[in-house]
Amino acid sequence: MNAIPDTMELVFQYPESLTKRNTHYCPGCTHGVIHRLVAEVLDELGVREQTIGVAPVGCSVLAYYYFNADFVEAPHGRAPAMATGIKRVNPDKIVFTYQGDGDLAAIGTNEIIHAAHRGELITTIFVNNAIYGMTGGQMAPTTLPGQKTTSSPFGRDPRIAGLPVHISEIMAAIPSVAYATRQSALDLPGINKTRKAIKRAFMTQQHGLGFSIVEVLSTCPTNWNLDPWAAMQWAKENMIPQFPLGDTRVSDEVAALKV
């Protein structure tokens, strides 16, 4: 490889906060994109060596293989509780959880809501693809009305299974949440906004401003039975109307951050 001439600016490179390991994610899955965004932010803020991540149970259970940072692996849904224990004994470290919608919005609602209420100085990356991916495409709390999954074969019937859980809106009602936002990894503008949101969330933690969470609308081509491109389009047409994009809570201090 040729050395980069002094006159050229390096504008793109492999993030130091990612390992070189190939991921196990399905083709078209957005976990890889979101991992990269988190890694770029850790690099940019220069905090990789102070960071402790908490991996969930679900498709991203092996996230610790892909981030070049200290990591622990939590029981299903308990990542915010583990992160609480880690952060409280390491107030100077950057601690984040990376969780899916089955993990965070079903079995882990208690842990996320109370970590948020305590105003834990942690950051949560919440990947919402409206389905349980790892266990084979069952209905999640975020599954859309009418959406067919392996455990809602006739489509989610709200009379039986209720309506989707809106985590970012729940977070908006919690006073000690400093920053809650819903973004998407469905196209380039969405990915760029997501990156900025992730940076704002980690800066919120760095400055000790309160709990921060970034929900990222994502896809599951495998379990949606769609090709990756069609999955992106399906998510835009169906998920975004159900889960509107944008900030749901931004404290004044967070709004004043220069991201």
């Binding site: 908490v54 509780a81 224990g85 109370h114």
Partner: peptide
């Protein structure tokens, strides 16, 4: 550090997190 957790599930997983830090 003292925290009254939201449940015993929360408490033991906070312990788990702190235990991973070797305290």
């Amino acid at each position: 550090v003292f925290i009254q957790a939201e449940s015993e599930l929360g408490a033991i997983n906070m312990v788990y997190g702190a235990a991973c830090c070797g305290v």
